[in-house]
Amino acid sequence: MKYQNEMKLRFPSRSANEAFARTAVSAFLAQLDPTVEEISDIRTAVSEAVTNSIVHGYPDCVGMITVEAAIGENGWVVIRVKDKGKGIPDIAKAMEPMYTTCTTGERAGLGFAVMESFTDRLKVRSTVGKGTTVIMEKRIALRDAQKDQ
């Protein structure tokens, strides 16, 4: 896909950056004039992916997370959240709703379920010991003015 615009953010895996990441991505995608629901879906999906990197990618240390967003053709946006953390040994298992490695009972295990439900396409690539990349694609409905461009 050829990108009309793109951005990249890099920040440490501190939980205070969860809000920053989702707000930055939604600010970047505002140029597409998304609906309130579309922006809410994107914010939530980004928040889930970043939180996963912080909680599971770097559970015992602080590492770097990269968030990229790109605007393609016909309203398609691609968001990538990458870490160089622990990696996921069994991706299929990790993506099962309610599955969580958390033992405190405070995590719902719904991160991937939310990402899958709130975006149009979800891909997860991971290697144990090397890191994880989550790729989400969503089509923002184009307004009439944008269609003519």
Binding site: R22, S40, R43, T44, S47, E48, T51, T104, G105, E106, R107, A108, L110, G111, A113, V114
Partner: peptide, 16 residues
């Protein structure tokens, strides 16, 4: 104004 699945965890934990 915003909630992701951490909020669900919060509710579930309080339910328990």
């Amino acid at each position: 104004s915003f909630m992701d699945s951490s909020g669900i965890g919060l509710v579930m934990g309080r339910y328990r």
